[in-house]
Amino acid sequence: MALINEVQQAARGRARGRRSRIAYLFLLPWIAGVLLITLVPMVTSLYLSFTDYRLGTSPRFTGLENYRRMFSDPDFLAAAGVTAKYVFISVPLQLTFALAIAVLLNQGVRGLAIYRSVYYLPSLLGGSVAVAVLWRQLFSSTGLVPELAGKLGIQMGSWISEPAHALDTLIILHVWTFGSPMIIFLAGLRQIPEELVEAAKVDGAGAWRRFTSVILPLLSPVVFFNLILQLIGSFQAFTQAYIISAGTGGPANSTLFYTLYLFVTGFKNFEMGYASALAWILFVVIGMLTAINFVAARYWVHYED
């Protein structure tokens, strides 16, 4: 009997081993991809961030010089400022807008699938070159937006080429692409148990009270999820500013997103060492903000379990 058990165990072990090998075989392309096109370049860029490296030449180790340089680099400071403004204005605006639309769509409207698709569409197009070009046309002095504003008695020039307003157009573009968080909010809203909302209603809670005291707390994990994703995505916004400013971050640095400055430094000015340092600072900042958010989430995100 013991022998039979041993034989069976050995057979099971061999089968498990075979299954593991097959599993690793299937995982191999992913593992190779992560190693070759993510980890190796990441480690390389970390090393390069401590060097003076121009494309086409050999890297020369300079220690922390690239990191020190940032503090006296006006373009770095401008890029950090523009990006911070963009992130901290556009993300809350976009999430608020997305949540509001999701709540409206969750009221049992007919043709929900159509509305959902229509509102989601800008999310698919938002980061595209075509939309950035369209935006440029819409907000130029002869574009549709100034024309409509003129009919309402509001005189506005070309927002695209005015340093005071160029970033505003990019914030509006970001808010307009609210479809993706909206879909996630809508899915979250649909998971909220109807009986809890009904119970609050029976207890005399009005619509606003039901929203703030029942729906929002139950939805907070989804809000948190959207917040993290949008925060990270917004720090890395690039295409819109690249197209609208013709790759310059202008007018007068007003749309110089961090990633755009990183690109210009690396691929226009060929300062790959400095660009690598810029990339690592971005990585660290995003990592820290994400960590802070996770800590803060303990105080406002409520999980059912």
């Binding site: 096109i37 993510t38 190796v40 370049p41 990441m42 480690v43 390389t44 860029s45 970390l46 390069l48 961030s49 994990p221 989804v222 948190f224 999820f225 993290i228 994703l229 990270i232 995505g233 720090f235 890395q236 990633t259 990183l262 690109f263 690396g266 790959m272 660009a275 690598s276 810029l278 990339a279 690592w280 971005l282 990585f283 995003i286 990592g287 994400t290 996770f294 999980y303 059912e304 379990d305």
Partner: peptide, 26 residues
């Protein structure tokens, strides 16, 4: 739900922040 969201958040951070670093690699 908590672990799914945390996992997704973590993966999201890695997926979205990684390319900026990768882009600067040799």
């Amino acid at each position: 739900r908590r672990s799914v969201l945390r996992l997704a958040g973590g993966l999201g951070a890695a997926a979205v922040a990684g390319p900026a670093l990768v882009a600067c690699g040799d």
